[in-house]
């Protein structure tokens, strides 16, 4: 009797295991499909950047790397491509990096300070200030682009790094984020610092900033990518080729059909344009994840 029961148990267990394995295989298949869908275009770009112009020009889409990688990347970095000879990618990458870093740092500093004011000080019109900042969330660059353009021209910031970055710095999102974080700092810690004799600036520097490090890192990653991917504003406010960013430059490389596109160099530039954001994410990932998930208290 008991042997029969055991036998039955064993069969049931085996079936369960098999079922689990089968559903596991299915899960993995779906996940792999997802990964392929994401990776494939990048693979095409990477492969495309290693062939000569005529291979792609013929309309073939090679799936395996070719032998022209070094030449293509060298051309992209130093020469550029397209009918109007875009600026060399090295310069454009530098411009993009400078713009992205300036925007990210500017956004973080401004929003840290404004969040500090809104979260810790009581002054007349505090809530008004807060809601005004909040309202700008509804006004992305695209909506206010004409007045912003006018302001930049009036301030004589056209064709300058300042003109490129300053209008993108004010950030309601980051301000809100920091404010919420600041509100979680226990009152008692604030009071302990007061009794210890820390003035407002000292408290900000010694207590608040170190506590916000993970949040700052997480925001830096997001904002760097935001800055890096800017297209419309740089296109509008910069005519000087020496200030061209890589995202804008990339589209300028693609001609209007009068001449053959140098897809190999374009692909190489595109791959180069991918690398800095990826590097930022990889380097800051540890803090980034901590900043999004963990509060240190």
């Amino acid at each position: 009797m008991s042997a029969v029961v055991h036998e039955g148990d064993r069969i049931a267990a085996a079936t369960a295991t098999r079922r689990r394995r089968r559903s596991g295989a299915l899960t993995h298949a779906i996940l792999l499909l997802g990964v392929l869908a994401v990776v494939f275009p990048i693979w095409i770009a990477v492969v495309g950047s290693t062939h000569d112009a005529s291979t792609i020009g013929r309309g073939d889409v090679p799936l395996l790397p070719g032998a022209e990688a070094v030449e293509n990347y060298a051309t992209a970095l130093t020469g550029g491509a397209g009918r109007f000879r875009s600026s060399p990618a090295a310069l454009m990458l530098w411009n993009s990096a400078a713009m992205a870093v300036l925007i990210a740092c500017g956004k973080i500093s401004i929003s840290l300070l404004s969040a500090y004011a809104v979260a810790f000080f009581s002054f007349p019109g505090r809530m008004l200030a807060f809601w005004t900042i909040f309202l700008t969330l509804m006004l992305p660059v695209e909506v206010r682009i004409i007045p912003t353009y006018q302001v930049i021209v009036d301030l004589d910031l056209f064709d300058s790094m300042a003109g490129l970055t300053v209008p993108l710095m004010a950030s309601a999102t980051a301000t809100l984020l920091f404010r919420q974080f600041f509100l979680t700092v226990p009152d008692e810690v604030v009071e302990a610092a007061k009794i210890d004799g820390a003035g407002p600036l000292r408290f900000f520097r010694d207590i608040l900033l170190p506590l916000s490090v993970t949040n700052i890192a997480a925001l830096f990653v997001i904002l760097f990518i935001y800055g890096w991917n800017q297209y419309l504003w740089p296109l509008l406010v910069v005519n000087d080729r020496s200030l061209e960013t890589v995202v804008v430059g990339l589209t300028r490389m693609i001609g209007n059909g009068d001449a053959q596109n140098e897809w190999n160099v374009i692909m190489a530039t595109a791959v180069l344009a991918l690398l800095p954001p990826v590097a930022v994410v990889v380097v800051m990932q540890r803090w980034f994840v901590r900043g999004l998930t963990e509060t240190e208290k």
């Binding site: 226990p186 008692e188 810690v189 009071e191 302990a192 010694d206 207590i207 506590l211 240190e296 208290k297």
Partner: peptide, 9 residues
């Protein structure tokens, strides 16, 4: 303080 209020960092 009741919650000690140490500086966590």
């Amino acid at each position: 303080f009741q919650n000690y209020a140490l500086y966590p960092h």
